[in-house]
Amino acid sequence: MKLTIQVNEGPYQHQASDSAYHFTKAALEKGHEIFRVFFYHDGVNNGTRLTTPPQDDRNVVNRWSELSKEHDLDLVICVAAAQRRGIVDDGEAERNGKDATNIADGFRISGLGQLIEGAVQSDRLVVFGD
């Protein structure tokens, strides 16, 4: 089965990103294909490398980055939602005159069309949110 996962909430505030991560990992372990993980609404905050959670807690952002590296996962952050909330990569920094970037490894910023394409190309869309 080919899956697209949508994550609507940021890390720590809500369990949605944890649930999405564990679901994605379990699907990969069962041999399913993850077409894309799409981060929308405050979910774009999963893609900042500047978080520093306490050492005795999980690192939600790094966990996604590592899963992406291990399985060549396509982690896409919605550009419109990212611009509102200040998630920036090199291209966005240049386009919008920002003095810093914060995007984490394995994530990329792209358009909402990526979510629709994910739904059209996949067998299932599974949404995690608040």
């Binding site: 699907a27 399913h32 299932r124 949110g129």
Partner: peptide, 20 residues
């Protein structure tokens, strides 16, 4: 169910509706 069972449920049904 565990997460593997969650994945199986997604596969077993035709679509998914999340009541957020």
């Amino acid at each position: 169910v565990d997460y593997a069972g969650f994945v199986d449920l997604v596969e077993a049904k035709d679509s998914v509706q999340s009541w957020l």
